[in-house]
């Protein structure tokens, strides 16, 4: 456990030093975006891996955050650091309103309902004048790669730490897992599933909204296809599933691997771009078949088996009167 902490702190330290070592703004930009995807993948996993509800409209919260920021900064000249928390709050409110009806659904029905809601939100941005319709919106430009790098790193590290505390240390983590494993049993033990699911949904949505806000200000241009399209959700889902659901480290690893792979293809193998989605699709299909617990789930399972093999077997027969012979 403590080794895991050390590794996380070490990774954070290395990331802090990155801008002073790498002067190339292209690379800095890539790492900034990789950190963004870590944030999106872990925030999706709060509801999917921990609570057991597959949200296929996660990108809507990202887009709502992005559009909230663009509207506030363009229409009333709000400073960015005022717009940022508001974007998170608006995403949280959308989650509250969307969650009350949809969290009654389970499995595929919840996935379909959230996907449809995200399409509805995208459509709203497409038809409204204030959001610029399909042309999207421009934001005031602030060209400072180092600023965005540190902002992204700080926010995602903060999200990670908050999730770590709430889901791995505090009672809340066990409560959402109880809902995931069996909501009837959870109910009979004093847990209100509707309340806990809503809390998890909001906890997943607010960071996505904040990340959308940073993204909008960083890229300076947003449109319904880029921030409200299916691709935002799909990539977060694929990263989390590939890395390992129900953990924080898994989706982070998945985000790094898949994002690096994608960037490498686009930057260096641009002649073979047609192959990108084909190879990615193949890798994901193979991953789901051969590594159903994701990369991190497989690694930690392997480590656990090795630890168990090293231990002396515990003799159960003498103490446990026949309880193992059913």
């Amino acid at each position: 456990m403590s080794r895991k902490y050390l590794l996380l702190i070490l990774a954070f330290g290395i990331l802090l030093a990155v801008p002073s070592v790498i002067q190339d703004t292209f690379f800095l930009r890539i790492i900034t975006e990789a950190i963004l995807w870590i944030g999106l993948a872990i925030s999706w996993d709060v509801l999917a891996g921990y609570t057991g509800y597959l949200n296929f409209g996660h990108g809507a919260f990202f887009g709502v955050g992005a559009y909230t920021t663009a509207l506030l900064m363009n229409l009333c000249g709000c400073p960015f650091f005022v717009a940022l928390p508001v974007a998170g709050v608006v995403a949280g409110i959308v989650a509250l309103i969307a969650g009350i009806p949809t969290l009654r659904l389970k499995g595929a029905y919840f996935a379909i309902a959230t996907w449809a809601l995200a399409r509805a939100v995208q459509q709203v941005a497409l038809v409204m004048d204030i959001t610029g319709g399909p042309d999207g919106m421009r934001l005031p430009t602030y060209l400072h790669p180092g600023f965005f790098y540190y902002l992204m790193l700080g926010v995602v590290a903060g999200i990670f730490a908050l999730y770590w505390f709430l889901l791995e240390k505090a009672p809340f983590g066990l409560k959402v897992k109880a809902i995931r494993e069996d909501d009837q049993s959870a109910m009979s033990l004093g847990l209100n599933p509707t309340k806990i699911k809503l809390q998890a949904f909001i906890l997943s949505a607010i960071p996505a909204g904040i990340l959308g806000a940073i993204y909008a200000y960083w890229i300076t241009y947003i449109d319904p296809a880029s921030v409200l399209g299916d691709l935002v959700t799909d990539q977060a889902v694929v990263m989390a599933v590939f890395g390992g659901l129900g953990t924080l480290i898994g989706p982070a690893i998945g985000a790094i691997i898949i994002f690096s792979f994608k960037t490498y293809f686009w930057a260096y193998l641009s002649n073979y771009q047609v192959l990108y989605l084909i190879i990615l699709g193949g890798v994901i299909a193979a991953g789901v078949v051969f590594l159903p617990n994701g990369i991190w789930g497989t690694i930690s399972g392997y480590l656990q088996t090795r630890r168990t093999l090293k231990q002396e077997p515990v003799v159960q027969e003498k103490t446990d009167k026949g309880a193992h012979h059913v």
């Binding site: 897992k177 494993e181 069996d182 959870a186």
Partner: peptide, 8 residues
């Protein structure tokens, strides 16, 4: 029908 939280 027993309902353990099987994964925990």
């Amino acid at each position: 029908v027993v309902k353990p939280f099987a994964g925990l």
